[in-house]
């Protein structure tokens, strides 16, 4: 069997990452340069600052990735790159660098959807079995994606306003927690109790969409109201109540989606997939689906990284997907919505 080696690039937000992936399932290297410290100064990602950091890091990351994987350009099969969705200026650094490498070494170029990357992080642990479902939750996305077969991604539900991770960052600010707030709020939530009954928006609606802006507003109003009457609220209880509402909606919708779309595998992916509350809850809920395997993306691969782009890139490579040198960043790139629900 020949060995496929993919050099992959990821720069859609505040991580510059380059990886070498063997046969789509083995990580030979996965270099991640994170800018979190820089953006913490501003309480969130500043796009122009992100672009400037990406260009500082990009060729150093390529070198490190090849060195750690102990491969040379001659060994490579193809170059894969995230071309959307994400911040346009940030995406452009990875896309331009990937195109330059592909051209310089006569390698095919594979365009990868960032969300397909998040889902294919699961493939680095165990081969994805189809049909499959993925709940992708991150700072920028909250989507339920149905995959009837390999290389078919169909959105069945998504957030109508804030992404779940975005809501964490916003209520984190109110609790005095700097971005990124997901992990500290998760930890705080485990020390508190669900004493505030925050709304679970759209939880009973007849669709698979999410909404977190009402929850975020209810949270902020509760805290502001208490401030005005000089009442001290228990922060751990606030965090626990917020997290409970988020987790309830995410898992209720996922469970209902699984009833309507029976699958062999459910994948929990994206930055918020590292949330302990969500992992525990889905694990418990999945007991009612004995024929569906739950695949929790490992914590080390939940955040943005190029290894997942290489895994998705290999799959796309096998399907003949190629880009030419005109490939551009597509900040609003989306999967198609499902056309006809299987019932």
């Amino acid at each position: 069997m020949t060995r496929d080696l993919i050099l992959s690039f990821e720069s859609s937000c505040d991580e510059t990452s380059v990886a070498v992936i063997e046969n789509g399932d083995t990580i030979l290297s996965n270099i991640v340069a994170t800018q979190i410290k820089s953006h913490q100064r501003f309480g969130g990602v500043v796009p122009e600052v992100a672009s400037r950091h990406h260009i500082e890091q990009i060729t150093g990351c390529i070198k490190d990735a090849l060195k750690q994987a102990k491969v040379s350009y001659d060994d490579l099969t193809a170059v894969a790159v995230t071309y959307g969705p994400g911040l346009v200026g940030a995406l452009l650094i990875g896309v331009t660098a990937a195109k330059a490498v592909a051209w310089a070494h006569h390698l095919p170029l594979i365009p990868v959807n960032h969300l397909a990357g998040h889902i294919y992080a699961a493939h680095l642990v165990e081969p994805i079995e189809f049909p499959a479902m993925a709940l992708v939750v991150s700072g920028g996305h909250t989507e339920l994606v149905y995959m009837p077969e390999e290389n078919k991604f169909e959105i069945i539900g998504e957030t109508r306003d804030d992404a779940a991770g975005e809501a964490y960052d916003k209520i984190g600010r109110v609790l005095g927690i700097n971005y990124p707030a997901g992990k500290p709020v998760d930890e705080m939530a485990h020390r508190g109790h669900n004493t505030f009954d925050f709304p679970r928006a759209m939880d009973t609606d007849d669709n698979f969409d999410f909404s977190f802006s009402g929850l975020k507003s209810a949270f902020i109003n509760t805290v502001h109201h208490a401030d005005q009457i000089h009442e001290e609220l228990n922060k751990a209880d606030l965090a626990a109540s917020f997290q409970q509402a988020v987790v309830d909606v995410l898992s209720d919708k996922t469970v209902r989606a699984l009833h309507e779309y029976p699958v062999k595998q459910l994948i929990l992916a994206g930055g918020v997939a590292a949330n302990r509350g969500l992992r525990d809850r889905l694990t418990a809920d999945m007991e009612q689906f004995p024929n569906t395997k739950l695949e929790l993306v490992p914590l080390s691969l939940c955040g943005d990284n190029a290894a997942m782009i290489g895994a998705a890139g290999e799959m796309l490579y096998q399907h003949g997907v190629r880009a030419d040198a005109t490939l551009n960043a597509d900040p609003g790139l989306e999967f198609d919505w499902i056309k006809e629900p299987v019932k």
């Binding site: 672009s51 060729t59 452009l92 330059a100 051209w103 310089a104 070494h105």
Partner: peptide, 19 residues
């Protein structure tokens, strides 16, 4: 233009580094 100079410099430094 910030995007313009990043485009040229990213391409230039990647081509130089990779070759």
């Amino acid at each position: 233009s910030y995007t313009g100079i990043r485009m040229a410099v990213t391409a230039a430094k990647t081509i130089a580094a990779t070759l």
